[in-house]
């Protein structure tokens, strides 16, 4: 059975990683607006994720404006896939337990 990833139990970090999982790369501003965080709050989460090798940060310029792009590493993708699988197991188990319970109650 896949295991939960303790780093992704934080809803904000899960939201950032989920967003990046669907993308090859995304601009810092896009991620900030999507997960509704301030620049500094996102920066802090990205630092945590990049230290653990979940997220790669690239900096560059468009014209004279500095830009930052984020992408999920292969390790980050693998960890997210395992985490999602573990979450699905929990949700499905609860569903099947819930479906079983009324039947059990009717049996004398």
């Amino acid at each position: 059975m896949a295991e939960l990833d303790h780093l992704l139990l934080d809803p904000t970090r899960l939201a950032i990683v989920s967003l990046l999982a669907a993308a090859e790369w995304a601009e810092f501003g896009f991620v900030r607006d999507s997960v509704k965080l301030s620049d500094s709050a996102l920066s802090k989460q990205v630092t945590t994720l990049s230290k653990k090798d979940y997220v790669e940060v690239r900096k560059g310029y468009v014209g004279k404006r500095p830009r930052t792009w984020l992408n999920l590493t292969d390790a980050g993708r693998d960890n997210l896939a395992g985490h999602i699988s573990a979450l699905q197991t929990i949700a499905e188990k609860a569903r099947s337990d819930g479906a079983q319970q009324p039947r059990d109650q009717t049996v004398p």
Binding site: S18, A22, I90
Partner: peptide, 28 residues
């Protein structure tokens, strides 16, 4: 490490799906 409750797991899975949808919409 505390295991999420089924409700928390379902909420997290919903957040994952919403993230994907946001990227798809913006990608156009």
């Amino acid at each position: 490490m505390n295991e999420p409750t089924p409700e928390e797991a379902a909420t997290a899975l919903r957040a994952v799906r919403e993230g994907k949808e946001q990227v798809i919409r913006s990608a156009l």
